[in-house]
């Protein structure tokens, strides 16, 4: 067991070094955190690896990144995603498999949310990309509703916004060879769904939080 733990830490260090990742924990809350729903902007396949690598050990052991089955679901990728990173694979809305089954694109299948709530009930954390698909790294798409439903499932579990800067430049959508850049991973203070808050206002709030973190990131670089 010790050996796998060491190997895991080594892998995390390697990923962080390769991504040139600087980790900022705004609330200094990660060390005390036991369970959380981490959500982030999505522009690269490296996103969940980098967040995974940036987490402290106790969270890393019990975190399940949500990854798309159409990319990570077969062959070597699948065993890497499932065995090493303990990823939870989901059918993406609008992916070809989902479309042929006739489900509405853009609507998250209920069964998948149930599966994710089971992960939370088991005490594990989640890493989720509410945009649903990788963007161009400059704008953040509208959020799918899954994040809201997960946040409502157990309102005690903190929802932590994670802003990822520059990862989309290391490995943009459609490219195979990564180009080294320095990246930044910012963990913001926890959010919770308000007692009266409806889906749209929570999702807007969550999305705007990421947008302002990324804008702040650009600005802070200037003042450092």
């Amino acid at each position: 067991m010790r050996l796998t733990q060491l190997a895991r830490r080594g892998l995390a260090r390697t990923i962080s070094a390769a991504a040139g990742a600087r980790v900022v924990d705004q609330a200094s809350a990660l060390p005390q955190l036991e369970q959380a729903i981490f959500y982030a902007n999505h522009s690269s396949h490296l996103d969940f690896l980098t967040i995974w690598a940036a987490l402290p050990e106790h969270l890393q052991q019990r975190v399940r990144p949500i990854a798309a089955k159409d990319y990570w679901g077969s062959g070597l990728r699948r065993s890497v995603a499932e065995r090493i990173f303990n990823a939870y694979l989901v059918e993406r809305h609008g992916s070809s498999a989902a479309r042929t089954r006739g489900s509405d694109a853009g609507v998250s299948p209920k069964g998948q949310i149930t599966g994710m709530t089971q992960v939370l009930d088991a005490g594990d954390s989640l890493i989720i990309f509410p945009e649903g698909t990788r963007g161009d790294g400059e704008t953040i798409a509208e959020f799918h509703s899954g994040l809201y439903r997960l946040a409502c499932h157990n309102r005690q579990i903190p929802v932590i916004p994670v802003a990822l800067a520059n990862l989309g430049r290391i490995l943009p959508k459609g490219e195979i060879v990564p180009v080294p850049h320095l990246s930044t991973v910012v963990f913001a203070p926890a959010m919770h769904v308000g007692a009266e808050e409806d889906k749209d206002s929570f999702l807007t709030r969550a999305r705007e939080q990421l947008i302002s973190m990324l804008a702040q990131q650009d600005q802070q670089q200037g003042e450092q």
């Binding site: 040139g20 790294g137 430049r169 943009p172 490219e175 180009v179 080294p180 850049h181 320095l182």
Partner: peptide, 19 residues
């Protein structure tokens, strides 16, 4: 080079050249 590329205003279309 990694530091320089990070602060450079490159675009997605430059990726292959950056490789």
């Amino acid at each position: 080079l990694r530091e320089f590329v990070t602060i450079s205003p490159t675009r997605r279309g430059d990726h292959k050249v950056l490789v």
